[in-house]
């Protein structure tokens, strides 16, 4: 749970990247991440090339560096973990500036840092240039089961509503001097969670009723659809293709 969850990542814009159909972008990011994960960690320069590729996409999408940096905060706990591995790791050790570090630990740290950072950056780029609703349409196009897409759609639609309810409950708790400090307060937090569940569940029931009232019979009517041209596929898949080429060259 990062601070980033409070805000949507989407940055409205009209760049080439924004205009690409969502299914193309989704597949491109997934393929790119796979190539990154499959790259042997000894190939330092590959990771540099990948970063440059992402930089190019960010430039084309006009996503500011500050936006990227802020959104990548989500990665911080893993950075901390990665930095810890060499210190606590076993195996062969070397001494750097008076600090004894494990060699396999250093490799593991580098591997996690490089790959996780590239993965997060690619995901942030996707989420920054694609409206959530479009991502869902894209996911459906990529044959994600439509029930799953619908569940995600409802979740996104009501996330703000539920979070607002939770915020109101927290304000109500705190305005009566409550603060979660130790075990004894667990019942209070639990009651909040309990009533949040009841509210969410009952809202789900009401939403379902509202759907039934308008003729829902278990299938969502497909109103929107976005089809992609060969050119758009080509443009989107240029990213993972380039990454694959880099990987190929390095082997």
């Amino acid at each position: 749970m990062g601070a980033g969850h409070r805000h949507q990542l989407y940055l409205p814009g009209g760049s080439v990247v924004h205009r690409l159909p969502p299914q193309c972008k989704l597949l491109a990011v997934l393929a790119f991440a796979l190539v990154v994960v499959a790259t042997p960690r000894e190939r330092f320069w590959c990771f540099g090339a990948y970063a440059a590729l992402l930089g190019g996409v960010a430039l084309a999408a006009r996503v500011p560096v500050g936006h990227m940096a802020r959104r990548m905060v989500i990665e911080v706990p893993f950075v901390l973990f990665a930095l810890l591995i060499p210190v606590i790791g076993l195996g062969e050790r070397i001494t750097v500036m008076g600090l004894s570090l494990s060699v396999p630990g250093l490799w593991a740290a580098w591997n996690i840092l490089a790959k996780a950072t590239l993965g997060v950056a690619a995901s942030v780029l996707l989420a920054s240039t694609t409206e959530p609703r479009e991502v869902l349409i894209g996911a459906q196009r990529l044959r994600l089961p439509s029930l799953l897409v619908q569940i995600a759609m409802f979740m996104l639609r009501y996330l703000d509503v539920i979070m607002d309810e939770m915020r109101r409950m927290r304000v109500a708790r705190e305005s009566r001097g409550f603060e979660a400090r130790n075990f004894r307060q667990i019942p209070v937090v639990a009651r909040s969670a309990g009533s949040l569940f009841i509210r969410s569940y009952e809202r789900g029931e009401r939403v379902h009723l509202a759907m039934l009232s308008r003729g829902y019979s278990g299938r969502m009517p497909m109103i929107n659809d976005i089809s992609a041209s060969v050119g758009q596929w080509g443009m989107a898949l240029a990213l993972p293709a380039a990454a694959l080429a880099v990987l190929g060259l390095s082997l």
Binding site: L156, Y158, R203, A210, S213, G215, Y216, P221, I223
Partner: peptide, 30 residues
Amino acid sequence: RQRVGLVFQDPDDQLFMPTVRDDVAFGPAN
């Protein structure tokens, strides 16, 4: 359900689609 049009007390219960257009289209599309 086609004949009885129910407007719920909380519009958030009734408007469950990502855009206004999709939402109004939901019933007739069904």
